[in-house]
């Protein structure tokens, strides 16, 4: 893990501001780190000299052709997201957390543009989802975290 070069940091911060309205000051107490596989972590400003850390802070995004925000980012900073919020009902939440992709009705996605969205149930930020033209919501949760939630 190394500290993100300025251009990459700006790309991530700019994307989160532009698409989700997440202001830059949210990140001011933390440092951005990058792993070899394009994973961006938000972590502490100071690190131990030795031994070298294996991992730092939380995964907040992956760099692909675009920036892909992580579910951990929304779960922690969801209250500061201002747009591209998609509310799921109980059944949809249960299915999404179990790893399913969903097809949503037009009125449910009326406030969102295609691309990455923050999913919410009740008032709780849940995860990141990928909304396609036509209402297909592609599941973005890693397989290892799929689970059958009983009480929600």
């Amino acid at each position: 893990m190394m500290i993100c070069p300025d251009d990459i940091r700006s790309r991530v911060v700019g994307y989160l501001m532009q698409r989700f309205g997440m202001r830059e000051s949210l990140w001011q107490d933390y440092e951005f780190y990058q792993s070899s596989r394009g994973r961006i972590h938000l972590g502490p400003c100071e690190l131990p000299d030795r031994p070298k850390p294996d991992s730092v802070g939380c995964l907040i995004a992956r760099l692909q052709r675009t920036v892909k925000p992580s579910s951990a980012l929304f779960q922690l900073f969801g209250q500061y997201v201002q747009r591209e919020i998609l509310n799921l009902d109980r059944d949809q939440t249960q299915r999404y957390l179990a790893g399913e992709s969903l097809v949503l009705a037009t009125d449910q996605i009326a406030d969102c543009r295609p691309g990455f969205v923050m999913l919410r149930y009740d008032v709780l930020p849940l995860a990141c989802g990928l909304l396609r033209e036509g209402g297909q919501l592609e599941n973005q949760l890693p397989r290892a975290s799929w689970c059958r939630v009983d009480l929600l």
């Binding site: 972590g43 131990p48 031994p51 294996d54 730092v56 802070g57």
Partner: peptide
């Protein structure tokens, strides 16, 4: 350890995998 720290939204942690008995001096 990673899974739990991430699930709980811990931002201020650095995870190390070291034998404490051989922890380097200095800090």
């Amino acid at each position: 350890l990673k899974f739990n720290l991430e699930r709980q939204g811990v931002l201020n942690a650095a995870i190390t995998n070291h034998d404490l008995r051989h922890w380097p001096s200095g800090q």
